[in-house]
Design a protein around this nucleic acid. Structure first.
Length: 582
RNA sequence: GGGGUUGUAGUGUAGCCUGGUUUAACACGUCGCCCUGUCAAGGCGAAGAUCGCGGGUUCGAAUCCCGUCAACCCCGCCA
């Protein structure tokens, strides 16, 4: 072994031992006589002392930042009063005998220290230096630990880890595929998987009973702080299950993950119908660490003289309100800012009402009768300091606007009721009408099964958009962590859904032959879920951006500043792939 | 595809709105000298930027305008 200890493990117990440490020179403090070297590796930092009489003093004195060194020495207690209590190894130091330079380093673009601010672009270009820093290093360790907890848990619960192909068939559904030209088959392409969806279902049909994989999914769509071209999913599928069975497995897994980082979460998670979530929170991924329920107040204004509400109500629209309670009276400029945000998203305006020093103030105060205020108070429980926001529009758009509004209010609330708020959103609509393409589309994926009691609606045209499905989303603190469903295991139902989506028999055969064929040979009832590992780890580590928990992420334009990918390729390569140069 | 914000020594920022005392400032880092108990060590000194790139307006542009590239955020998109 090159080293006897790491830089993070020596303590009082080792005093008197001869040790050898390897690491990077974090910093050097030269006092003209005594010289301190701070050695760093993954595990921590250790102080090395070099005395002037040491034969290697001049070697040590001339070290530069991030030189890689091997130090032989003796562990000794630091002199009285010179301990560093902020450091696990701060009680001891290594009195150097000998030093060997294993490698040198150029001057760094930025110091390996937490307190140095560096732009994300520079961090990505020198990712290997960024990872040497404490934060990113810690994030990657946490991520690895979580992945390990997941594997252990699933294996313990009789899941088998099975790899599915990265080179697979392009599917017409969903996101844009990444295509890989086939050299051997001119003019043909593989696609990188958007998810192992069909393969995992086929593994159930294969009788593997329970499958999982930490699967990489690829989507050629624009990036965001919570979206990369490739992301990792905890992908799983189970046979002979209903939605509750899947939930039990996932909840158990989350419990173990959180307990591994010293956190407690409550199970079972809250169940919420999709319709209820939309009605109460205006979104299918509500952050229920906060209240701020949306209330329908259309009834209160049914006889109003306020022109805008009048028109909305007369044309079948609705009026909804949120009481921003326990925040503070919003100032005029804060309200203006909120209004601006809503308008950017297409809303027409925002009405406000607040109670200040026991008096009601409002942008529509002259239209409010005493009865209106009484009714509003009953519905919204308005007390001093509250600001109520009221928006109106048609039934469809209002939910979006009021959902955005609620999110803005949440941002101003620093007091969540709890740290981790998990919930299941259940029974999404199965189909939605796509007017521009003149067909129905699966709201989730085409393999999601309708709820058994809704099956008959598949044959009633007027009911198609009302069919509830066995789809469930897992939401944590307002973030969509994962999505799953009980699948169609009966071929004729799957066929019916494809037809509603506008595919004829020939297209079904062409595009989905593998799953359709497999479904005809005794497919068991099955269901599963895919949970975004990047998002999960990001939330746990306290980030909005998943780039902070990915070792080598891409920028928002899909570039990698470190490798310079994507890049141009040789003409020869293109020729082999039968691709014409552009 | 669209909108917004940003781009100034190695790093992070100020200056830009209101063009000229700017010889572009500050902090950290780097380099040199001093210093025997520091730990984001300290003291003294030095080097380092044609202000993302291209064009325009102007007597004069880091500063105003247009274009372009890149980063970040958002909409679309993401079953």
């Amino acid at each position: 072994m090159m080293r006897t200890h790491t830089c993070g493990e020596l303590s009082d117990k080792n005093v008197g031992e001869k040790v050898t440490l390897c690491g990077w020179l974090d910093s050097k403090r030269n006092h003209g006589g005594v010289l301190f070297l701070i050695l760093r590796d993954l595990y921590g930092i250790t102080q090395v002392v070099v005395e002037p009489k040491n034969n290697f003093f001049s070697v040590a004195e001339n070290l530069r930042s991030e030189y890689v060194v091997k130090v032989d020495g003796e562990v000794r207690k630091r002199p009285e009063g010179n301990e560093n209590r902020n450091l696990p190894t701060g009680g001891i130091e290594v009195l150097m005998d000998k030093i060997e330079i294993l490698n040198t380093s150029e001057e760094l673009p930025f110091a390996i220290a937490e307190y140095i601010n560096v732009s994300e672009e520079t961090r990505l270009k020198y990712r290997y230096l960024d990872i040497r820093r404490e934060t990113l290093k810690k994030n990657l360790v946490i991520r690895s630990n979580i992945a390990q907890v997941v594997r252990n848990y699933l294996v313990k619960n009789k899941f088998y880890e099975i790899e599915t192909p990265i080179l697979t068939k392009s599917t017409p559904e969903g996101a844009r595929d990444f295509l890989v030209p086939s050299r051997i088959n001119p003019g043909k392409f593989y696609a990188l998987p958007q998810s192992p969806q069909m393969f995992k279902q086929i593994l159930m049909i294969s009788g593997m009973d329970r499958y999982f994989q930490l699967a990489r999914n690829f989507r050629d769509e624009d990036l965001r702080s919570d979206r990369q071209l490739e992301h990792t999913q905890i992908d799983m599928e189970m046979s002979f299950v209903d939605e509750k069975d899947v939930a039990v497995v996932v909840e158990g897994m989350m419990k173990e993950i959180f307990s591994s980082i010293g956190e407690t979460i409550e199970t079972p998670f809250i169940d919420m119908e999709y319709d209820e979530a939309m009605e109460k929170y205006g979104t299918d991924k509500p952050d229920i660490r906060f209240g701020y329920e949306i209330k329908d107040i259309t009834e209160i204004f049914k006889n109003t003289d306020f022109k805008i509400f009048r028109q909305i109500i007369d044309s079948g629209g609705v009026i909804k309100a949120i009481n921003a309670k326990n925040v503070h009276n919003y100032s005029r400029s804060e309200i203006d800012k909120l209004t601006e945000t809503l308008k950017l998203n297409g809303a027409k305006g925002l009405v406000w009402l607040k109670m200040k020093d026991g008096k009601i103030e409002s942008s529509i105060i002259k239209f409010l009768k005493d009865d209106d205020i009484k009714n509003l108070n009953e519905k919204l429980n308005i007390t001093d300091g509250d600001t109520v926001f009221i928006a109106s529009d048609n039934r469809k758009d209002i939910l979006k606007y009021i959902g955005i509004l609620r999110n803005e209010i949440i941002k101003n609330d620093k007091n969540p009721s709890k740290k981790w708020a998990f919930l299941w959103i259940r029974h999404f609509p199965l189909l939605e009408w796509k007017a521009d393409e003149n067909r129905y589309d699966a709201t989730h994926n085409p393999f999601t099964a309708p709820m058994p009691e809704e099956l008959y609606k598949l044959d009633i045209k007027e009911e198609l958009e009302n069919i509830k499905s066995c789809q469930y989303d897992l939401v944590l603190n307002g973030v969509e962590l994962g999505s799953g469903s009980v699948r169609n295991h009966r071929k004729e139902i799957q066929e019916k859904i494809f037809r509603l989506m506008g595919y004829d028999d020939r297209q079904i055969q062409e595009k989905f032959s593998m799953i359709m064929n497999a479904l005809s040979y005794g497919a068991p009832p099955h269901g599963g879920i895919g949970i975004g590992l990047d998002r999960l780890v990001a939330i746990i580590c306290g980030y909005e951006s998943i780039r902070e928990v990915i070792a080598f992420p891409k920028t928002t334009s899909g570039l990698c500043p470190m490798t310079d990918a994507p890049s141009a390729v040789d003409e020869k390569q293109l020729k082999e792939l039968h691709i014409k140069d552009i």
